[in-house]
Design a protein around this nucleic acid. Structure first.
Lengths: 213, 213
DNA sequence: GACGCAATTGATCATGCGATCAACAATAGG
DNA sequence: CCTATTGTTGATCGCATGATCAATTGCGTC
């Protein structure tokens, strides 16, 4: 870039940027990313198209293409963003508790929160779409790894505290992750008629981890 | 139908039906259904389009449309067929064992069979597509209900035999189904690096059902 | 062996997709 | 104030989808 960023000049001159109209590249790019996240949460990953995003933000589809030239990778990036933010929320729920046992329970409990339904829908769609979008498949695997590590660390803490007796925390983490994904996917289709989801789940995990007492 | 079925006449006259060329409506319709199942297993539910099916069986897409006028319902029906056939296989595995405990183990074990990967892919895609295909969503719910009933009956048998102590077999069945779906979906993305899937799963279920001993 | 029913085809319409590019216009910098 | 940069548009291409329909042709029946 040989010219200075318009925003820098605006800041220097104290000019007020019009909210409508032309925006700085960084601003516009971020707006596109944000709109894509909202669109995916509202209508699914499949709704992420140049035209739908452009329409939602009142802009030509070609402008979206200008900032995101390869839609496949943009879909993958949007999935990663949604999954990452969601995971951060779950981590934050965990950090609200103290003690290895309570922390793991908070983690597991919030992972089954029905508020996460929209996110689960995105996950399920990503599993299916990953079949034909390699970039997305990569993002899905990375995000699953991150979740497994999150669970593994929580389980390991419990083992270190003498709460659990489990030979292979990593394997147990995969097992628990599978249960979380399955139960959430199930809730996506029928959230009714399956009482005590969390209760039974936590109990099953306790057994799985060989909880003492 | 005022005219007799061509096949009846062919049978009477002993004529040999040409494999290529014109076929009886029932024959053609069945062929279309079969091709759709194969296509979905090979390339996913999303591959079920008038043109893809027509191309695979060397026929005009309009002929497929003639027999299956609403593609959404045809996708739903194809999913139901795949899921139903798969479930029948799992039931058959169960019936190869005797005794409530062995039968349930056979059921659960075959449900995690890696040979079912293609079917799992169809399930995952159905969960996602069901969001915009109501007929498919209905089929998915029906098939999930059938699975839950399958598991519930197996668990109930165990309870009746005094093998398990579980207060609510129906709720336990949902729980186990969630675990099956989650672990299978997981295997779809990464079948490697997750050892002892079946082993740990069966163990977790034993605990969940309050197995004696 | 001719007739007529209906299985099958091919063409066509409207829609939506990603991608591309010349042209336009808003804005920063001199 | 004027110019150069560049954010932005609108048009267009090629492709795929579901749907529809008149025309064709294979085949059973009389």
């Amino acid at each position: 870039m040989s010219t200075k960023n318009p925003q820098e000049t605006a800041a220097r001159t104290g000019a007020v940027r019009k909210r409508t109209g032309r925006k700085s590249p960084a601003e516009r790019h971020q707006e596109i990313r944000d709109v894509a996240v909202g669109l995916a949460l509202d209508e699914g990953l499949a709704a992420i198209t140049l035209r739908r995003i452009g329409a939602r933000m009142g802009v030509a589809s070609s402008l979206v293409a200008h900032y995101e030239p390869r839609i496949d990778e943009f879909v993958a990036a949007t999935f990663a963003r949604i999954a990452g933010l969601d995971r951060a929320e779950v981590e934050s729920a965990r950090d609200g508790a103290s003690g290895a046992g309570a922390r793991l329970r908070a983690l597991l409990g919030s992972s089954l929160d029905t508020e996460r339904l929209a996110v689960t829908a995105v996950w399920v769609e990503a599993w299916g779409l990953g079949r034909r979008n390699e970039a997305l498949a990569v993002s899905v695997r990375e995000e699953m790894d991150a979740w497994q590590e999150l669970l593994r660390a929580g389980i390991q803490d419990g083992v270190d505290s003498g709460l659990y007796a489990v030979a292979d925390p990593a394997a147990a983490a995969w097992q628990v992750l599978g249960m979380i994904d399955g139960l959430n996917a199930q809730a996506l289709v029928r959230w009714e008629g399956v009482p005590d989801r969390r209760e039974h789940f936590l109990e099953a995990v306790q057994h799985l981890l060989g909880a003492r007492g």
